[in-house]
Design a protein around this nucleic acid. Structure first.
Lengths: 250, 250
DNA sequence: CGATCCGTTGACGGTACTCAACTACCGTGG
DNA sequence: CCACGGTAGTTGAGTACCGTCAACGGATCG
């Protein structure tokens, strides 16, 4: 979900510093380049209203139910979005990386909370200002529509995962989506989040996630390579697992 | 998710008939009136490009993976949106009623399929034309952004339901959301969809849904009132159930 | 009247949860 | 230097919720 509002390389720019320039979005390779749709006049305007900010791991910086005064773009690090139930049950509804956007709520209040997984850089845009900019620069609104539409499609995929897939299928799907998103040459995949986070994203418990990891390692699909990274050895086997390949070896 | 593109009362208007006039949206009482944001010049333009269409129950009229050439608005009846896995498992990602919009995909293809639950009226807008209209009438794009944002928030709620709630909590949440959406004076709720549909929406089996219905009836929360309708007798008890009230009566 | 679909109910079993013990890995500080 | 506590992760034993399979009742329809 790239947006010109946030570019990976302008992460720590000061408030008044103009964005470097329009450049190809490096976050989602292969996707259409939405950055190209933004003219420099728009960039100047957007740059003027944003506030750069850093967030330490474990810090919650958006709370569900609070007034939705700002829209955020992630410039570095990983953010988790989640919802809580009164008894503490938690559902993580998404992990955001550089280029992603959140906080654009349908009503007056945020519908999810946001917490930094790793050290995070974000840009904060006052929502009212941003909305006013829509009428002046329709390209910005168009981008936001694209981003939200993509997020909706991802949410629908996740509903299929949560409603209908087994634990093995869920973890396989999750690892593949990370592989696709990170797109490292070798099959390495960063896992900055804890087992508990993964569990809360996949609708499982930490123990089940751990057990499934063990099975996947044992079957040679993946290999652990130090803390916080794994290697995907057999993406095809993982893809079959993700889509319910009936392993009728009996 | 109301949109001026579709108004409940213009449901069966012919292709060339102009929409009656801008009027208060009756689909989502209490919500802000997005219809008011559309000027009559836009309405004329939108009316000119739409095609009215009716769909019989059980007919699939949008297929996941097919080129996304049209955007649809529902004018009457109930539509289910769903995703399928290769082995037949199904997840319904939403039920749409009059005023709802779908088919606005992030890429070139639809990401979900659509099937009529009851006899359905829809309006079809060529996607390219609609997108071109965005630049001319920004209000339309703004509405669509509102609609999609609302759908995303609903999808996140559903992720919490699918990932973390028990069968009882799921059905209670579902019935309450229907009650809120239909907002009938008495506590009556229409259930035009089958038990299997409800199960596929809640990530359960038909049998479990049936069993939980029986329990809810037995506990006096709801009462069956003929086929396809129930009465909600105790919305508060249902609300407690929906949010995991630990019924420690022991 | 048989066929089919939808829904209900029962018996049984499996996947994933709960509870618990244990290891590894930190950084802290005695 | 190593004991110490805290967090993250792994593994095991037992269990519960919900899925599977199956039988049955009622409604609709040709």
């Amino acid at each position: 979900m790239p947006l010109a509002l946030a570019t990976r390389h302008s992460a720590h720019a000061a408030v008044v510093t103009p964005l470097p320039r329009v450049h190809t979005c490096q976050v989602c390779p292969g996707r259409h380049n939405v950055c190209a749709a933004v003219r420099s006049s728009e960039l100047d305007r957007l740059t003027a209203m944003r506030t750069a900010q850093t967030v330490a791991p474990g810090m919650t910086f958006v709370d569900e139910g609070e007034p939705a005064l700002h829209v955020f773009t992630v410039t570095s690090g990983v953010v988790k979005l989640f919802k809580l139930m009164s008894d503490g049950r938690r559902q993580i509804v998404g992990f955001l990386v550089a280029g992603d956007v959140f906080g654009f709520a349908p009503g007056e209040k945020y519908t999810v909370s946001a917490e930094a997984v790793s050290p995070v850089g974000v840009c904060r845009f006052p929502r009212r200002q941003l909305e006013r900019a829509f009428t002046e620069f329709p390209g910005v609104e168009r981008q936001l529509l694209d981003v939200i539409t993509r997020e909706l499609a991802a949410a629908q995929d996740q509903m299929l995962l949560l409603g209908r897939k087994t634990a093995h299928e869920r973890l396989a799907s999750f690892l593949l989506s990370l592989l696709r998103r990170q797109d490292n040459e070798d099959g390495s995949v960063d896992l900055p989040m804890t087992r508990t986070d993964i569990a809360d994203y996949l609708g499982l418990t930490m123990e089940t996630v751990s057990r499934v990891f063990t099975v996947l390692k044992g079957s040679g699909c993946i290999a652990a390579t130090g803390s916080g990274t794994i290697h995907i050895l057999d993406a095809d086997a993982l893809a079959e697992l993700a889509e319910g390949a009936a392993d009728d070896d009996a």
